[in-house]
Design a protein around this nucleic acid. Structure first.
Length: 258
DNA sequence: ATGGTAGCCTTGCTA
């Protein structure tokens, strides 16, 4: 089995201890990180290499930043989402790990909506759809894993009425997310779990984690060939329970050998 | 309507 995970760590430097502990405990083969909030030069490569993981990193100062950790070295790295040469946010990295094409995705939040940031989010989602179509044409199994900043349905949100105008839940965001699925891509968690109220993110404010007031916005999306091999998918709440946690917790899935 | 928290560094911005 190959275990793939995704985690928005909200600063890899602030979360390094948690990350190393979790890599040891969860033993994933491939990890997509988001919001590393540092440049490639500042990424804690040595500490992570000490646990046996190589890293491909697309970083920038202060904001955003994505990475793919893997036990097997990654090949054929792509460091931007195609479709807009003026977009300089570090939100996308894609590489081949073993027989799987993997992308670490940090989709724009989009708030406040409506507005420029919401327009950027929707345009970014359209670019992702165009690129996903290109990946499908190559017929290599692939996974898009990351913080999509979209709660696909009302049962992915603790208070749908209160969030209905938020960029994470607005119908325009959900329509674009559904357009990805309509290409034939599967939401790995939903493929194996029908129950609602299963979350990957809880705001730091107002004891939202303690009261389980969360949203399911971190996803692993799979091509048909990858879905054929999907055996398990779950959300690991344990890192979110620790002191000084990220506001997100990891989602992971396991694939059978081809 | 507001403010609640965290991380970065820009004591505001992003989330």
């Amino acid at each position: 089995m190959t275990k793939l995970a995704s985690w928005n760590v909200n600063s890899v430097k602030a979360r390094l201890g948690h990350l190393l502990d979790w890599l040891k405990a969860a033993a994933p083969d491939i990890v997509c990180l988001q919001e590393i909030k540092c440049t490639e030069a500042d990424f804690p490569r040595l500490e992570i290499k000490g646990l046996g993981y190589d890293a491909v990193v697309v970083g920038q100062k202060t904001y955003n930043g994505v990475a793919i950790l893997s036990r097997v070295p990654a090949k054929d790295v792509v460091v931007t989402l195609p479709g807009d040469g003026t977009d300089d946010h570090a939100r996308y990295v894609e590489a081949t790990v073993g027989d799987l094409r993997v992308a670490s995705v940090y989709l724009p939040n989009g708030n406040p909506a409506p507005g420029d940031k919401f327009d950027y989010k929707l345009a970014w989602m359209k670019r992702l759809e165009v690129h996903a179509r290109d990946l499908l044409d190559r017929e290599m199994p692939f996974a898009l894993a990351g913080d999509f900043n979209v709660a696909p349905a009302d049962d992915d949100v603790y208070d749908p009425a209160g969030w209905k105008n938020d960029a994470l839940c607005r119908p325009e965001s959900r329509t674009r997310f559904r357009a990805l699925l309509n290409l034939g891509i599967a939401d790995a968690f939903r493929a194996l779990h029908s129950e609602g109220q299963r979350y990957t993110y809880w705001d730091y404010m107002q004891r939202r984690f303690e009261t389980d007031h969360g949203l399911r916005i971190d996803h692993i999306l799979l091509s048909p060939q990858a879905t054929d091999r999907l055996r398990q998918c779950d959300i690991d709440k344990s890192p979110r329970q620790r002191d000084k946690p990220s506001d997100h917790t990891p989602i992971w899935c396991a694939f059978a050998a081809p």
